[in-house]
């Protein structure tokens, strides 16, 4: 991961393994969105699904994470039966891109690298990404696509980003440390 160019880190390497990982990530996203949350109100709940882009991003980069979240949300809508909400899918796409930036600032989970400094940058990325996605992108798309009530959309968006940030930090950080530890114990062999 460390010796790749910035473009490769941003876009990810689209080989068969990445495709399968993104697909599994999308399915996991769909499942967690349907069964792993407590619904609060319209399209919004304290969902654990946002963990998926964290893991996919850590292993494959931001764009795979974003695709996993976007496709995952479309699939969740299909099996969940609450109708198609492309505004939220695109919002999740944007948020997941920021959340999945991990390899870009040097947190190579697959090589066991994840320090406190990375954790702080990760938390900042979560806040910026969710704020941008659900504070700007989703409300604009909602008014364009559906003409819903803006005040309600903003309330939902604020709740959505807060709960996402909470889940990403409180649940995501321990998982990232655990993943890094697990990979570190595997990768202490050096090539000769």
């Amino acid at each position: 991961m460390a010796n790749k160019s910035l473009g490769q880190k941003l876009l990810g390497v689209w080989n068969t393994k990445t495709i399968v990982a993104v697909a599994i990530g999308a399915a996991l996203f769909g499942v967690l969105m349907n069964y792993g949350g407590i619904p609060v109100f319209t399209n919004t709940s304290l969902t654990t699904a946002m963990i998926v882009p964290v893991v996919v991003g850590a292993m494959y980069g931001p764009l795979p994470a974003a695709v996993a979240a976007g496709v995952g949300n479309v699939i969740a809508d299909l099996i969940g039966g609450w109708g198609m909400w492309f505004d939220w899918s695109i919002g999740n796409f944007v948020a997941a891109f920021f959340v999945g930036l991990l390899p870009v600032y040097g947190a190579y989970i697959t090589e066991g690298k994840f320090t406190v400094k990375h954790a702080v940058i990760y938390a900042l990325c979560c806040i910026v990404g969710n704020g941008l996605a659900f504070g700007v992108v989703t409300p604009i798309l909602t008014t364009l696509f559906y003409g819903g009530d803006l005040n309600v959309t903003f309330l939902q968006a604020i709740w959505g980003s807060l709960s996402n940030i909470l889940v990403e930090v409180v649940v995501g950080l321990p998982i990232l440390f655990m993943l890094a530890k697990r990979y570190a114990s595997r990768s202490n062999l050096e090539e000769e």
Partner: peptide
């Protein structure tokens, strides 16, 4: 077609993953 594979693969593995989750 790579995006299409993602969609169909994800769609197909959902019951497995849902079972694992439960």
């Amino acid at each position: 077609y790579k995006i299409c594979t993602i969609v169909s693969l994800a769609y197909r593995t959902i019951p497995d993953i849902a079972n694992d989750f439960i």
